Amino acid sequence: MALVSEPRMPIRVLIADDDALVRAGLTLMLKGAADLQVVAGVADGGDVPAAIDAHGPDVVLMDIRMSGLDGIEATRRLRLRPDPPEVIILTTFDADDHVFRALRAGASGFLLKDTPPEGIVDAVRRVVAGEPILSPSVTRRLIAHLLPEEDDRRRADARRVLARLSEREREVALAVGQGKANAVIAAELHMSVGTVKGYISRILTKASLDNRVQLALVVHDAQPD
């Protein structure tokens, strides 16, 4: 995976949600940020590819539950495209039990639908800049809520992935798994932010992963009960 380049301005956003009021609300909300531009809105995951071809968004805000193609499958298909946009999953925490499936499909993170406007704007900026969205506290809550049972095969696969890494790469991977940003990892491991990005890029290549959120899930899967 190539290192993240500087995001273009404005950051172009596509909204995929089958609720017209949600699309309108998000569009109005994002208009308040001078560096963000909502380029299109669609009501079904199946319409996302055509919208990407037409408008070239940098980020897709993707609802999970839509009446046609759901956000998980739409995300999985997007990750098969060359140079796909980042995907942020929109979810209601208490009702949606598919967040981790979506992250494994290649989403860069998730937002709760009641996230304050400044939080949504910040999340869009962060995924374009290559930074994680999942905070350690929210990650722990989601793991407890969505993953009551570990899968032995997935745990074994995750441990094999980490075993292929060098000691320094494992240190970086564990820090990513704890939801730490590049600057924090750099300070704790006494290296530059550019060096951290280089390590993450090599780790993702070795592990055949799309992004750091998937790496965080691998780190979680490898942990003992």
Rank of each mutant, 00 (worst) to 15 (best):
I52C: 14
M62G: 00
A50P: 04
G56P: 00
R23E: 01
V22H: 10
G68C: 14
K31T: 09
I64E: 00
D47H: 13
M29R: 09
R79T: 11
R81T: 13
V59S: 00
G45M: 05
H55F: 09
L30Y: 09
L21W: 10
A40C: 09
L69C: 12
A51F: 04
A24S: 01
A34K: 12
I72S: 06
G56T: 12
L21G: 09
P57F: 00
P85F: 01
L78I: 06
T75A: 06
H55D: 01
R81F: 11
M62Y: 02
P49F: 06
D53E: 05
G46L: 10
V60R: 02
D83V: 08
R23A: 03
A24H: 09
V59Q: 01
A54R: 13
V22N: 06
G46R: 08
V48S: 03
R23I: 01
I64Y: 03
R81L: 15
G32P: 15
R65K: 15
D19S: 12
M62K: 02
R23G: 01
G56R: 09
G46K: 11
R65N: 15
E86R: 13
K31D: 09
I64R: 06
I52M: 11
G45W: 02
L78S: 08
L80A: 14
M29Q: 15
R77T: 01
G32W: 15
P82G: 03
L69S: 14
G68L: 12
I72C: 12
A51I: 10
S67L: 05
I64W: 05
M62P: 02
G71M: 08
M66D: 11
D44A: 14
V42M: 07
I52Y: 02
V48M: 04
A74C: 14
P57L: 02
D35H: 10
A20G: 15
D44Q: 12
P85D: 04
M62V: 07
V38A: 01
A20L: 13
D53N: 02
P85G: 02
P57V: 00
K31Q: 11
L78D: 02
V60N: 02
E73I: 12
D83R: 14
G71R: 06
V60G: 00
A40D: 09
D44I: 12
L36E: 07
A43H: 06
D19I: 05
L80E: 15
A50F: 03
V59Y: 00
R79H: 13
G25F: 10
V22S: 08
D47F: 04
